[in-house]
Design a protein around this nucleic acid. Structure first.
Lengths: 195, 195
DNA sequence: GTCTATATAAGGATAGAC
DNA sequence: GTCTATCCTTATATAGAC
């Protein structure tokens, strides 16, 4: 729909983020122009700069928001004492959270190299905190003697990489329900850590 | 080094591919200009078009060469009859092959969306063939009753995603040798399929 | 086969009117 | 807050000289 002149600060901001998110995920940050984003929102390119100082900040904001929400949502979960149960909770949480946000996840992984060094460090730090959440579960399981894991750091990265793969193929309405997918992956994770 | 005028068709072609590979992997296809590639090679931008019809063909060629070499190298391995041994062979082969070619692997996974639809289909087909190689091993193991895998298609994607993760963190000369990394991942794969 | 020069288009970002 | 207009830079790709 064509837009007419006027003041719309309350809705334009989120619409810019939505459009940038979708376009960055689909075509990549470098391949998307500010004019494309503006067209999607229904404003002229110059108007975008009322909401973001530049294109880089737009990308960084999307990634930072995503990582912060990931950490906050996980932290809000009541922590399960039993390592095995905690690992199952993490596995199912990770799959569900990521499948609900395919565009955010895609950007968070694919556009790291398009961040300035400072922004890259900030996002890497947030990602490291999330990895630590999983590794602490693995360490507890090893300490309790219920997990058989040779290297908790590598196992952490291996499990996350495996779970992230779901986003590359899962489509709602396909052969398997989300619940079934969660269970299949949990079965593999469980066995991989020797539980 | 600065280049002078002259005829160098025998060496310029490979040098263009090398430069494009490194630059695409580092900054992303869309973010790299033909001028950058030319500067890296030591020629003017126009000279590149003696070797490639356009930038897209340069990307496609790199990805196609990589996938074909992956398939050919795997096919050249004497196929192991025992499913468990075959899976170990695949796991160690995949890790080693991919760690030896970090730039090619990075591009093959990150730049799919920058391919034209025709080129995308061609690369996806090659990737599918590689996945089939692993899935056929898993199917044989399930049929022989030695693997415990709920869904061979998902297990295939899960294993490959897990193994690909190595490329994001492994650096030669680090805490672990390549042999140790292979063994740690093989241990997780082995357990994940119930072997 | 490479160079210089250029056609043609698009990019990020800003200025000033409304 | 948005628009129009524009500055300035860069992009892919081609043409013709050497």
């Amino acid at each position: 729909m064509a837009r007419t002149a006027g003041s719309h600060s309350d809705i334009t901001g989120p619409r810019i983020q939505d459009a940038a998110l979708r376009l960055f995920a689909r075509h990549g940050y470098a391949a998307v122009s500010m004019r494309q984003i503006a067209r999607e929102v229904g404003v002229q390119a110059g108007a975008l700069y009322n909401y973001t100082p530049d294109k880089q900040s737009l990308l960084f904001g999307l990634m930072q928001d995503h990582m912060r929400e990931l950490l906050a949502t996980w932290a809000a979960r009541s922590q399960v004492p039993d390592p095995g149960a905690a690992l199952e909770t993490f596995t199912r949480f990770h799959i569900r959270f990521h499948l609900e946000r395919p565009d955010e996840v895609f950007i968070a992984y694919m556009e790291l190299r398009n961040l300035t060094p400072e922004n890259h460090a900030a996002i890497s730090d947030l990602r490291g905190r999330y990895e630590d959440a999983l590794e602490s579960i693995l360490k507890r399981g090893v300490a309790a003697g219920v997990f058989d894991v040779a290297d908790t750091k590598i196992a952490t990265l291996a499990v996350i990489a495996m779970l992230n793969g779901v986003n590359t193929w899962y489509r709602a309405g396909g052969r398997l329900s989300l619940e079934q997918v969660e269970t299949i992956y949990w079965d593999m994770v469980r066995k991989a850590v020797g539980l």
